[in-house]
């Protein structure tokens, strides 16, 4: 059973100089208990996709979709207020920067008990007891003392643990983690990733992990969506993407990071150029201006999605039977 199903999601922002088409016709699904990674560069639309699904975008954003089905409910038919009521209870969110997403004026206790009082109608004592339990669950030492502290008194790693504790407070069915470790050091990142994995094992919640770090994806996720220019260019399970990628952008992403056993002096293969301007996205494939294998058709038409297996699909004109056969270069 799919916990989340999204079909043909479009999101645009009307700003002074024009319309930014941030998400253009995305469809995907997330099964119960599955961990899905969304990778892409800044501006590829990965965060906006999840914010659109969860109704967290500002009013000037225009969101339309054929379906956004979460846990059997059609979110497109619910009012904004009803969608937002799902937050904190059925959908938990973890953001990149725990300094700006925690309220600096409230203690950890205030912030941690708020969703419990709101969604679970717990009284103060019960909420406090649950907050202590949550802090222990996310391995925060000395939880009694931490409850009384303010966010600025905590280190980055501890703040992110508090964020995670808030996200899981009401035992959500789905956790959305938007670059949860990007602001942290590698040793702290390892702690947080380990914690997320433990929590997932214990609760069987689905995790959607938004990141630009292929290393984090490789160790955390079972399925991957690769986004570029507001569209999904390739999706598949983790091995299909890492060892059998078909889209030139995915090759580019994998080739531009140093390999584990790469010797000094071997050149990295960068992707030339810069990501597209979403005010005026290219008419055809968004990646065509940077693609080494670009054909005339790529500039004119958006490529159709070709299914290669039950899980693996790719949107690229190279998949056309008459297109040249090109494999990934190392």
């Amino acid at each position: 059973m799919n916990l989340l199903e999204v079909k043909n999601l479009n999101t645009s922002f009307h700003i002074g100089v024009g319309t930014v088409h941030a998400v253009r016709g995305i469809s995907f699904h997330v099964a119960q208990g599955e961990s899905v990674g969304i990778v892409g560069e800044s501006g590829s639309g990965k965060s906006v996709t999840m914010l659109s699904v969860t109704g967290l975008l500002p009013d000037y954003a225009e969101v339309s979709a054929d379906t956004i089905r979460f846990d059997g409910r059609e979110l497109t038919k619910l009012s904004r207020k009803e969608v937002r009521a799902l937050h904190g209870s059925e959908i938990g969110m973890i953001f990149q920067d725990p300094m700006t997403s925690l309220n600096p004026l409230f203690t950890v206790e205030n912030q941690l008990t708020e969703p419990l009082k709101l969604h679970r109608r717990m009284d103060k004592r019960a909420a406090r007891a649950r907050a202590l339990e949550l802090l222990r669950q996310v391995d925060i030492p000395n939880p009694e003392a931490r409850l009384k502290q303010y966010p600025h008194e905590l280190s980055g790693g501890l703040r992110q643990r508090v964020m995670i504790a808030m996200a899981i407070a009401c035992e959500p069915k789905m956790i959305i983690a938007d670059e949860p470790t990007t602001a942290l050091d590698v040793t702290i990142q390892a702690q947080i990733l380990e914690l997320l994995q433990t929590l997932k094992r214990e609760s069987n919640a689905s995790i959607i992990m938004i990141t630009h770090d292929m290393g984090v994806i490789a160790s955390m996720c079972s399925r991957i969506l690769v986004m570029y220019g507001g569209a999904v260019c390739e999706q598949g399970d983790v091995r299909e993407i890492f060892y059998g990628a078909k889209h030139p952008y995915t090759w580019g992403l994998l080739n531009s990071i140093p390999k584990v056993h790469q010797k000094r002096g071997e050149k990295l293969v960068p992707i030339v150029g810069t990501p597209p301007d979403m005010l005026q996205p290219p008419a055809g494939c968004p990646f065509s201006p940077r693609c080494r294998y670009c054909m005339p058709v790529c500039r004119a038409y958006m490529p159709p999605v070709t299914a290669l297996s039950d899980t693996h699909s790719v949107a690229c004109h190279l998949m056309h039977p008459k297109a040249p056969k090109i494999g990934r270069e190392d």
Binding site: V186, Q189, D213, A218, S219, F242, L254, I257, K259
Partner: peptide, 9 residues
């Protein structure tokens, strides 16, 4: 060892 390895296997 804390560095995430971009190779699932």
């Amino acid at each position: 060892s804390a560095v995430p390895i971009a190779d699932p296997d």
